[in-house]
């Protein structure tokens, strides 16, 4: 097995300077993701410190639908896997298969966003809005920021599908898909913390 140079997709490089380019951009993208991770960590800390600040409004135990959260978790996890399949197809140079797996990933991503919006609208119709209490403000902001990342990821997949169609699996396209892969898996990492910190503790309460 050849030595892997980078996380994510393993690209085989025709020229050494391509490998160098990928190494530089991927490291830069990791740095960005780690900055983003700190952002989420601070929002998690804020959420944890505000869980009990319901100001007389509803608490998480009264509001959260654990079934919906489970469904969201599975959809997002599957999308991470299908992106992996796209990455393997990409590595084998199978353009159609790669595009197809990306489309599946995109659909799962949109499905996740749909589930999240359904949850939000259900909460808001119950009168649990971000303005109700500090607890709900931090809940909505944490989830929305994650959702915003998912939306950006979906748009990015759309752009990459167009670029694959136009440029084929050229070097810049593969390099961008590599970074998109990191971004997409990162979304799932954040979600693990969300369901562990936000949803699960209130089920048994």
């Amino acid at each position: 097995m050849s030595e892997r140079q980078h996380p994510g997709i393993n690209l085989t490089h025709a020229r050494p300077q391509d490998a160098r380019h990928a190494e530089v951009t991927v490291f830069g993208f990791w740095t960005f993701l780690m900055s983003d991770a700190i952002l989420f960590a601070l929002l998690f800390a804020t959420y944890a410190s505000m869980v009990s600040r319901t100001a007389g409004g509803p608490s998480g135990a009264e509001l959260f639908d654990i079934g919906n959260a489970f469904l969201e978790t599975i959809v997002l996890l599957l999308s991470s896997f299908t992106f992996g399949m796209a990455a393997v197809a990409l590595k084998e140079g199978r353009q159609r298969a790669a595009s197809l797996w990306l489309v599946v990933t995109l659909l799962l991503g949109l499905g996740f966003l749909g589930l999240e919006l359904r949850e939000f609208s259900s909460l808001i119709t119950q009168g649990a809005t971000p303005q109700t209490s500090g607890f709900l403000s931090s809940f909505f902001v944490l989830l929305s920021l994650h959702g915003l990342h998912a939306l950006v990821g979906c748009i990015w997949i759309g752009v990459m599908l167009a670029q694959i169609a136009i440029f084929g699996l050229s070097r810049p396209v593969r390099s961008r898909l590599l970074r998109l892969g990191l971004f997409w898996h990162f979304l799932d990492l954040v979600w693990i913390v969300i369901f562990t910190l936000v949803y699960l503790p209130v089920v048994s309460a």
Binding site: R53, S137, V141
Partner: peptide
């Protein structure tokens, strides 16, 4: 978000926490 959307992160009322 507090100022534009009326949320309660750092307000005195509504469960905000200025110390955060």
């Amino acid at each position: 978000l507090d100022r534009y959307l009326g949320m309660h992160f750092f307000t005195n009322d509504g469960g905000g926490n200025v110390m955060n």
